[in-house]
């Protein structure tokens, strides 16, 4: 994901803002990391450039 995708993503549980934590990136492209919702204390993983915004109970 490009960092500017932060403009449109929200926590699927509370629709609140997320904090981006980057593990690896290439310029503007985040390859891996997490998106954190402080209100729900929940992490959403970013793997291979793709954020997984499914609520925890729907993940694989």
């Amino acid at each position: 994901m490009k960092k500017e995708m932060m403009n449109i993503l929200a926590c699927p549980l509370c629709k609140g803002e997320l904090v981006l934590n980057i593990s690896s990136d290439e310029g503007e492209e985040v390859i891996s990391g997490t998106l954190y919702c402080a209100a729900c204390d929940e992490y959403y993983p970013i793997e291979k450039g793709i954020p997984n915004m499914l609520p925890p109970e729907m993940r694989d």
């Binding site: 994901m1 490009k2 995708m5 403009n7 449109i8 993503l9 929200a10 699927p12 629709k15 803002e17 959403y44 291979k48 450039g49 793709i50 954020p51 997984n52 915004m53 499914l54 609520p55 729907m58 694989d60």
Partner: peptide, 29 residues
């Protein structure tokens, strides 16, 4: 579908995994 997302990403599209609008902010964007 995670397989679809990998495919779309390889095709150069910015994607995220979501159940309909679940992962989107309600900012009328």
């Amino acid at each position: 579908n995670p397989d679809a997302l990998e495919c779309a990403y390889k095709n150069g599209i910015q994607v995220f995994r979501s159940n309909l609008f679940g992962g989107l902010t309600k900012k009328a964007y």
